[in-house]
Amino acid sequence: MSATLIPVSPPAVVLAAVQAAVEQTYTRFCGDKPTVESEMQADHDCECVAGIISFFGDAAISLAWVLDAAVAPVLAQKFARFPIPFDSSEMGDVTGELVNVIAGDVVAYLEARKFHVKMSLPTVARGARLRLMPDKGVSVSHVNYATRAGKFWLRLAAQVD
């Protein structure tokens, strides 16, 4: 007998952990504090790169951190300390590392609040008008940010069994 999947919103503690980790990491490297523009799914009509990583344990959650083509090279250069063009193979590599660092912060933040998750290896997608499609029954939350360099978005998809 197969388990029934019940869609749930990502737990508030996970969303708070992800937002704190992303905002702190961005500010640490780029200097300015990103501002939340909206929490609606938006059609991002631009070239972008997404670092995607999953958490499993007390909840099953997928995080995508999507950076537009203006902000990605700025953040990548600040993180790696050498220039990385948006269309280079190294951009995928560094985006994976960035989301991996964020995931480490999220796991530690949640662990301190007795919410136990482990993280997967990261994957990366790059494209124009990138729209990630959730499986049926999966609930998705979005947070859209603006920065001095450009825009980025968070996408959290969650389900429990």
Binding site: A80, E90, V94, E97, L121
Partner: peptide
Amino acid sequence: DDSGIMRKMVMN
């Protein structure tokens, strides 16, 4: 490290 960027960052 499986990331070439991270290997380069550690060496630098």
